[in-house]
């Protein structure tokens, strides 16, 4: 019953209670204590620790899929079983695994959030060093920090106002915005999103330039690639497809099941898409999938050199 929703147990305390805060503080102290203890771990022990943790993490999901799941219907009225207890160890473990899934999912999301902060930390570190040591182009780093601080302040104030102040639901509409909502909109929609779109759209220029300079019919493979690309591009052009299909439709019998109907651009593209493109991409997908499965097994068992377990 480790993860069941109960009011007060060893794992749960009343909100705001001193017992809860004391346990939180102790957990943080123990956690950091363990971290510093790990700094003293000898090299041999490090690999064992990381391998063990990786294996246990993966073992949860392996057991989730392979262990007998609790029978449906035994969870009616919030009670797992008529007689209140699992019958044996197998059923006990099955219930434990199933109950643990929300917690495991939470842990994965929360840890991922902390790890996403690595990118933020890295940028702050690099540009902070540039700024404080007055390295070349430190002015740009100052601009970066100004923009970052502005976004953080505006973002948090806006978040607080739109969720925790009376009448916050009205702030959804621009007609009810205050200065902080305008500031948030200017920075987020007016600048950040707009520049994001601009960055991605620059690639269009490079694609055109690369296609012009490098796309040459020098081999059988290049010819096949170019021909298929042209058919796909023509099928994407509605006007071309319309005119081509119209021309084919004038051939006697084309619209009433005659063989000519198969030569409309739409039908040609459909046939190539269904019978050549799809299996080709599916074959690539299978190859990638087999690789991912093998990689998954190797990561779980820490057989991968230079992977998570390398110390």
């Amino acid at each position: 019953m480790l993860f069941a929703q109960v009011e007060k147990t060893f794992w749960a305390e009343g909100s705001g209670s001193s017992a809860l805060w004391l346990k939180i503080l102790m957990a943080v102290v123990v956690g950091f204590g363990l971290t510093f203890a790990m700094l003293k771990l000898p090299a041999r022990g490090r690999r064992t620790l990381v391998v063990g943790i990786t294996f246990l993490a993966g073992l949860y999901w392996v057991l989730y899929y392979l262990w007998p799941q609790p029978l449906p219907g035994r969870l009616a009225n919030g009670s797992p079983l008529p007689h209140g207890q699992p019958r044996d160890l197998v059923e006990s473990v099955g219930f434990w695994i199933k109950d643990a899934q929300p917690v495991v999912s939470d842990f994965a999301n929360i840890l991922s959030s902390f790890l996403l902060g690595l990118g933020v930390f890295s940028i702050i570190r690099i540009h902070g060093r540039k700024l404080f040591r007055r390295q070349p182009d430190w002015g740009f780093s100052a601009v970066l920090f100004l923009a970052m601080i502005a976004m953080v302040i505006v973002g948090y104030v806006n978040y607080y106002q739109t969720r925790y102040t009376p009448g916050s639901s009205k702030l959804e509409l621009p007609s009810n915005w205050g200065s902080w909502q305008f500031a948030n909109d200017l920075l987020f929609n007016g600048l950040l999103q707009q520049m994001d779109a601009a960055m991605f759209s620059v690639i269009a220029f490079y694609i055109l330039s690369a296609a012009y300079r490098a796309f040459r019919i020098r081999s059988v493979e290049a010819t096949i690639l170019l021909s298929t690309a042209l058919i796909v591009i023509f099928s994407l052009m509605g006007i071309v497809a319309y005119e081509w299909n119209n021309a084919v439709a004038h051939i006697p019998g084309a619209t009433t099941g005659g063989i000519a109907g198969n030569f409309s651009l739409t039908e040609i593209y459909k046939w190539i898409n269904q019978n050549v493109q799809t299996p080709a991409i599916r074959g690539i997908d299978f190859g990638v999938g087999i690789g991912a499965l093998a990689m998954g097994l190797r990561l779980w068992l820490s057989l991968e050199r230079g992977g998570a377990s390398a110390a």
Partner: peptide, 26 residues
């Protein structure tokens, strides 16, 4: 090397799922 602890947890969780999700997908 200590950074490999949380990374190992995330990778381990991902790897364990491949047992089933591979078949769901393919």
């Amino acid at each position: 090397w200590i950074s490999r602890v949380p990374i190992g947890i995330i990778l381990g969780l991902w790897a364990g799922q491949q047992v089933q999700v591979w078949w769901n997908r393919y």
